[in-house]
Design a protein around this nucleic acid. Structure first.
Length: 573
DNA sequence: GCCGTTTTCGGCCCGACTGTTTTCAGTCG
């Protein structure tokens, strides 16, 4: 059983317990264990094999009780305790808890009173007007539930790229190792690095595809086989993701890859160019009459169409074809170009690991500096820092830097904050504290539904604070969960230009905030951005990749992204 | 349920908003 599955079950146990009004600490214990396991680098099965129950208990947040449950899951694939809870209240929790504002207590009440166990039944009950009649619910709650369902439907069951990528890469690696696979690439929206993906298209070049196809449809992750042929097979994975595997000929590889990478509109435009030149373009190649003139590689294909090669992240019809023709494509920031991370949370607040551990992990991830940006006091639940504690934290950072220097470690830890922007646009820490920090990030965590103009002015006021260097996750959206707060982004971007404020590209997979369209606007207006992990544990630096992908989708070059100089002593902005 | 230690129990444990109420429950970050 995979870590993500164990994490899901533990987190559902937490929710079941919450429904029953269990002690909040017990619930929190399950949540915390689920979180840790979800971002664990090593497979639990390996941990268990190496060190048994004891090794499981070594995992932070896992004690005797949870370790035994994990053991049972690994050994039998089932957990009696979980099944008992589920039998008592057979509710599709993963579905219902996606609705913003609907927590375990409400879900339980809806089940008890109306028998609602899944999204469909919830929608039906809301439409029949039954929910507003329940005690504790009303007109507004029913309306919000319907709105939540609508929002969920719009996101259309798409998977968040960064959360799904480890699974896809695992499959990719195993397929690549099979005998007879000459080439393999994952195309589609995965290759374009869209923030969410609908399904996965894998292309291979192989002489004898049958054993490869046989393996593909019998992988342990497979829940259903739609098709199992020699040229194409299609499956549904246990997590609901559809994956297609196609075999293509070597001489068509480039054109097939192009075809299956999309976007559809980009492909249509390419086909039109081919027609204008008297050619025909399809997934088998570029043809003049019956003769194939290109298609073995994508580079060859674009060249034959009179274009420069266009990176997959740009193939969204945002002007890339014209830019390619005029040789004006941006020199995109590379996946290895990032040198530092300007948003890192630690165990001082809601992060899982100490400053030093985060710093060492950052170094392993190839970074040269991090900025420690713990939350501030308004976010009480995270133990947000007040003036006194942040001064203490600064001292610890000084000590770590000294220690690193003495040990010849190059990585620099900078002092920062993710300071709450209060309702009126003022900051949650006094100016005299902010002035002592290397990087001041500011962000909104409350009053999400102010009217557009008020919300915009609130952030503009923060940008005008001379100490504020950057606005973090500027629009506050959570992909598939919550829309951005109502903002006039044109005004925000213009103000960023005027005040020299950095706008963040928060790389966390369900944030990716700014989104690509806004990044593109910033690039056009020469507003600087920063790509940050928003990391809360030592494993989170890997998400920077998705921030870079998003930046590339927004046409970012290296110079659009803030990077601090190696020898520079601090104040970066 | 986990953790840590003054070693086997007590601490963990905030604060504000929303929508329902008329004093509070549920949710969220």
């Amino acid at each position: 059983m995979e870590n993500s599955e164990v994490a899901r079950i533990l987190s559902e146990i937490g929710e079941f317990l919450a429904m029953e009004g269990e002690s909040p600490f017990r619930i929190k214990a399950y949540e915390k264990a689920a979180e840790t396991i979800g971002s664990l680098q090593e497979e639990l099965a390996d941990v268990y094999q190496k060190g048994g129950l004891r090794a499981l208990e070594e995992i932070p947040g896992v004690g005797v009780s949870i370790a035994e449950k994990i053991e049972e899951l690994l050994k039998t694939g089932h957990l009696k305790y979980y099944e008992k809870l589920k039998k008592k209240s057979p509710i599709d929790l993963s579905e219902l808890s996606q609705i913003e504002g609907l927590g375990p207590k409400s879900i339980f009440k809806l089940y008890k009173k109306l028998g609602v166990a899944n999204l469909k039944e919830l929608e039906a009950a809301a439409k029949r007007g039954e929910i507003k009649k329940l005690e504790g619910f009303g007109e507004k709650s029913e309306e919000n539930i319907l709105k939540g369902i609508e929002f969920l439907k719009k996101s259309g069951g798409r998977f968040i790229l960064g959360f799904t990528m480890p699974l896809i890469r695992g499959i990719e690696e195993r397929l690549k190792q099979l005998r007879g696979v000459k080439k393999l690439v994952v195309g589609g929206s995965v290759r374009r690095r869209k923030e969410t993906i609908g399904d996965v298209d894998i292309l291979i070049v192989a002489d004898k595809p049958k054993p490869i196809m046989d393996y593909f449809v019998s992988m342990p992750e497979v829940a259903h086989v739609y098709a199992h042929g020699e040229k194409k097979s299609a499956i549904k994975l246990k997590n609901g993701l559809d994956v297609d595997l196609r075999v293509v000929h070597e001489e068509s590889y480039g054109s097939a890859l192009n075809y299956f990478t999309g976007s559809k509109d980009h492909n249509v435009a390419l086909r039109q160019i081919a027609i204008d030149k008297g050619y025909k373009l399809n997934e088998y190649g570029l043809f003049k009459g019956k003769k194939q003139i290109a298609g073995r590689t994508e580079e060859e294909l674009y060249k034959a169409l009179g274009l420069r090669y266009i990176e997959p992240e740009l193939r969204e019809m945002r002007g890339e074809i014209e830019a390619s023709r005029e040789n004006k494509l941006p020199d995109l920031i590379g996946y290895n170009d990032l040198r530092g991370d300007l948003q890192v949370q630690t165990s001082w607040t809601d992060g899982a690991d100490s400053i030093e551990d985060m710093a060492r992990a950052a170094m392993k991830a190839g970074l040269e500096y991090i900025v420690v940006t713990d939350h501030t006091k308004r976010l009480a639940m995270t133990k947000g820092l007040d003036a006194k504690r942040i001064v203490k934290q600064m001292k610890e950072i000084d000590e770590i830097n000294k220690k690193f220097e003495a040990a010849g470690i190059k990585l620099k830890v900078l002092k920062g904050t993710e300071c709450d922007i209060l309702k009126d646009g003022s900051m949650d820490l006094p100016d005299e504290i902010l002035s002592q920090l290397d990087v001041v990030g500011a962000s909104v965590h409350s009053y999400f539904n102010l009217p557009k103009e008020e919300q915009t002015q609130r952030i503009i006021k923060a940008m005008r604070n001379p100490h504020v260097d950057m606005i973090m996750h500027p629009t506050g959206r959570l992909i598939n969960k919550r829309p951005a707060y109502d903002l006039d982004m044109e005004k925000i971007i213009n103000e960023a230009k005027n005040t020299g404020t950095i706008l963040e590209i928060d790389a966390f997979p369900d944030r990716l905030d700014l989104k690509d369209d806004y990044i593109h606007e910033c690039v056009k207006k020469e507003v600087k951005m920063a790509i940050d992990s928003d990391g809360h544990s030592i494993n989170h630096f890997s998400v920077l990749e998705y921030g870079i992908a998003q930046a590339r989708r927004g046409w970012c070059t290296k110079s659009d992204v803030l990077m601090l100089g190696r020898s520079r002593r601090c104040y970066p902005c």
